[in-house]
Design a protein around this nucleic acid. Sequence first.
DNA 1: GCCAACGTTGGC
DNA 2: GCCAACGTTGGC
Length: 161
Amino acid sequence: MPRYWLMKSEPDCFGLGDLQQCPDQTTCWDGVRNYQARNLLRDEIKVGDGVLFYHSNIKEPAIVGLAVVVREGYPDHTALDPNEKHFDPKATVEKPIWSMVDVQFLSELPLPLTRAMLKQHPVLRGMGVLRKGNRLSVQPVTPSEWQAVLEIEGLPDPLSG
DNA sequence: GCCAACGTTGGC
DNA sequence: GCCAACGTTGGC
């Protein structure tokens, strides 16, 4: 059984549209520099897992799309490159410290789910992303939360079959 | 732009 | 190992 995750991205930096433009509509989810999120990327997130794509740090933050994990847990090489924004001088080839996964675009939500909408839903109101002060950029989503999103959107489960 | 919440750093 | 200072995140 797949598991489900929510991944935050600032659309000014990299949005769902950017993912759609990528070759194979696939990109590496690099630049995560938080140990808790790193542990999820390195140890927990597997090929075939579902991803809710969340736009953060904008006027109306919302879940805007679906994606799927297509490559799991490998070193984030951007930590080794001094020219990269998320360069980490402590990272080495032997001990890369940071991990990433690859995700592929699945679909755009016909109805983006804003925080106000999430808060009104009996299931989705419990989502971690709504908790005050929650800064985790990668966080777990329950199967019922995933199902609830699909039901609202009128979408079949893209991960079944 | 404000500011609360959180993670990290570094002196001791 | 404590904790104050600082930087970042991210909703509002």
